[in-house]
């Protein structure tokens, strides 16, 4: 569950990134966030992750009062959110298995839990056979699957995907989106920022369009609506 009330964000250099944003995303929803570059998509994601703090307004994510969260509780907020990025952000000198297990080690999960959970998740994203490979031996789509596996291994309530298909060819992109949709159908809330028109139009899901830091559209079964 995500709730933003009157959220504004002005960076210290004076840039106004978000203006009075009100937004509610229910548990289990699948939401696209679209809009031109610089419209505030990245800022929105950073606020949800508490990488940045809002200048004004309240943010609630999974029962965490994000804006007033004490520094030492930030890690626990982030454990309740799975994150996937355009550039995968895998550790190059660790294997696929180790990359995924890493996210569990951080939460101080037991070795037994890790041995049980990691193969299960790798199977779910279709990479069970490549567990011992390193990221550079994998294709882009496979690397994104690894980062998806890492995002999901701690069973987060929310999955945030920041242009997850940005570096992938259209066919691979669709595979990743289908996988994310599978995850969504198991009950995980998904927020996906994207520029991929075909995917947004094809999925017919809720679309939130940001323009100049404000919500320009918020449509159920919406479309991409931009020419780029």
């Amino acid at each position: 569950m995500i709730l933003l009330t009157n959220v504004s964000k002005t960076y210290s250099n004076g840039t106004i990134a978000l203006k009075n944003v009100n937004l509610y995303i229910a548990k289990g929803e699948f939401v696209f966030v679209v809009g031109p570059s610089g419209a505030g998509k990245s800022t929105l994601i950073k606020l949800l992750m508490r990488e940045e703090t809002a200048s004004y307004g309240d943010i609630i994510v999974n029962d965490f009062d994000v804006g007033n969260l004490k520094r030492q509780y930030i890690p626990y907020l982030r454990r309740s959110i799975g994150t996937v990025f355009q550039d995968f952000r895998l550790l190059p000198n660790k294997t696929v298995y180790e990359n995924v297990a890493f996210a569990m080690q951080v939460t101080e999960a037991s070795a037994k839990e890790i041995r049980r959970q990691v193969p299960f998740i790798l199977g779910m994203v279709g990479l069970a056979s490549k567990a011992k490979m390193c990221p550079h031996q994998l294709s882009g789509g496979e690397q994104q699957r690894v980062s998806l596996a890492r995002a999901l291994v701690n069973n987060p309530a929310v999955l945030i995907a920041d242009e997850p298909t940005g570096n992938l060819d259209p066919e691979t992109a669709w595979d990743i989106v289908k996988l994310i949709y599978d995850i969504n159908r198991r009950g995980t809330t998904v927020v996906m920022a994207t520029h991929a028109r075909e995917i947004v139009n094809g999925m017919k899901k809720r679309v939130i369009a940001l323009e100049n830091g404000m919500i320009a559209r918020d449509d159920e079964k919406g479309v991409y609506g931009y020419e780029d």
Partner: peptide, 16 residues
């Protein structure tokens, strides 16, 4: 620093 950044967004505590 990449490793540290990844640790931060998967929810590692500062001391970890």
């Amino acid at each position: 620093r990449k490793e540290i950044n990844i640790m931060k967004f998967v929810g590692a505590t500062d001391w970890f």
